[in-house]
Amino acid sequence: MSPLELVGDFDHITEQLRASKPVASPALRERVAGLRPAEPRWTFRLPSRRLVLALAAVALLASFVAAGVTGLGGSKQTTLAGSRPGFHPTIAPRAGSATGGAAGVERALQPATPSAMSTVAPATGRIQRYDATLRLRVHDVDGLSQATQRAINLTRGLGGYVGSIDYATSGGNRGGAMLVLRVPVGKIQAELDGLTDLGTILQQRTGILDVTRRVDREAKQIAELERELAQASPQDAPAIRAHLATLRAKHARLLRSARLARIVVGLTTPPKQAAVPPSRFDRTLDDAGSVLVRELEILIYALVVAGPLLLLGAAGVATARAARRRSDRRLLERA
């Protein structure tokens, strides 16, 4: 039975109750009409639901703005720090070492160029010591192995020999080799041309030391000693002969070194590819995301810490309200 139907069943009572509704006396009307607002005093008021919702929205917005601003700021800093991804300090060759301080010495230190090696060719009619350094980059370890083998074959094919080889690989995709090659000076150009075909030139250096005067001087000394030996007494002859032998050996070494050029070849694979730096937008998103995650962590932490207390408080308030309601009901039933 609905309440309206129920009220309908008791029409005779309800009509009488409505018709006889108590009316306020004139004295009460005057009393209420005479009420005046008291001076406003500060009282603690719980914030309204709208205000709480507005504050929550503002807090949410502020957290997003903070995340965005932090993300943008972070990406800017990262951009500044990473604005020189290809920055590699270059050590300029010292002028003294490049040009040579001593007379008769020529040196050329050239940066990497994709072109073929330009060499300072030994002068004809002069006795010169020739040395060169070449750094080449090959594609991979297989290329390194092939280039090393080709350099050896080339040198041997030109009548030279390999002074030393240092070959190493790491991780199967990176490696390097250092070869010290000796080739006849007359074949130096062919050797260098062949070597530059092995890979990309990273660095090259050539040097020529003219030893013609030194060879001539030593030759004169030897001739003088031979003359002295021919005229020397039997007592002096052994000492002169020993000196002569030493000088001849030295002279022979000098001539040999002038006959064979020394070429140091360094072969290397490309350095490990650096990871592609993320774009500024990606960095901004990452930074903003991490800030939001951090904010969420703080919120969860606060909830975990304050949660039990809040639950206890809410339970206390609910219990107090229920008790109050029960007490009111009993009070009204007794009244």
């Binding site: 009572i13 109750l17 018709a19 006889s20 509704k21 108590p22």
Partner: peptide
Amino acid sequence: FGEGLSPEL
């Protein structure tokens, strides 16, 4: 409870 109510009510 109001003028006009029956004494029973």
